[in-house]
Amino acid sequence: MSETPHTVAEIVTFRLVPGTDTVAFVHAARALEPRLRATGHVLSRTLSADPDGTWTDHIVWTSHAVALQTAGEIMADPIAAPMMQMIDPDHVQMRHAEIHYRQE
């Protein structure tokens, strides 16, 4: 039996560099939208913030392989630089989880 790719959730939690304007950060994060859409593999994306200042970028991808490949490409893309400069690198955690159920 051959394996079929499953959708994958990319969950990135982080904190912003102290003093970062949240409106500017959201604007910088939204600047990635055309790049993500161009992959044809992003099913959804949500950016949220907890009251304690922890942010979560949650992206649903068509497969784990595409998520990993695109993450590497985006890190090298100048369009991502403004967003990345606002994220505290000491407080970043990324994980990928296979989705077994998703309510529409």
Rank of each mutant, 00 (worst) to 15 (best):
A49F: 09
M86V: 02
V17Y: 11
A71F: 06
S44P: 00
T22S: 08
P34Y: 08
L47W: 13
A80T: 01
M86K: 07
P18D: 14
M84L: 15
I87T: 05
T20V: 03
T56S: 11
A24E: 13
D88Q: 11
E3R: 02
F25V: 02
R37T: 07
P34D: 10
R15M: 08
G53M: 10
D50P: 00
I11R: 10
T20W: 14
D21N: 07
T39W: 09
L47M: 04
W61T: 01
P51Q: 10
W55G: 01
G19N: 08
M86C: 06
V12M: 14
R30L: 14
T54K: 08
P82E: 11
V92W: 15
I79Y: 01
Q93S: 06
S44F: 06
G72Y: 06
G19K: 14
L16P: 08
G53R: 10
A71V: 00
V92P: 14
M83A: 05
H91L: 13
L68C: 04
Q69H: 05
H41W: 12
T70V: 03
V92E: 15
A67W: 15
A9C: 02
D21P: 01
H64N: 03
I79P: 00
T62G: 14
L68V: 01
R37E: 15
S63Q: 08
P89N: 05
P5S: 04
V60Q: 09
P89L: 08
L68T: 00
L32A: 02
R35E: 07
A80K: 05
H96N: 12
T20H: 12
T70P: 01
A29W: 15
M1I: 03
V17S: 10
H96W: 12
L32W: 09
H100F: 12
R35F: 00
V17P: 04
V17E: 09
E33A: 12
D57A: 09
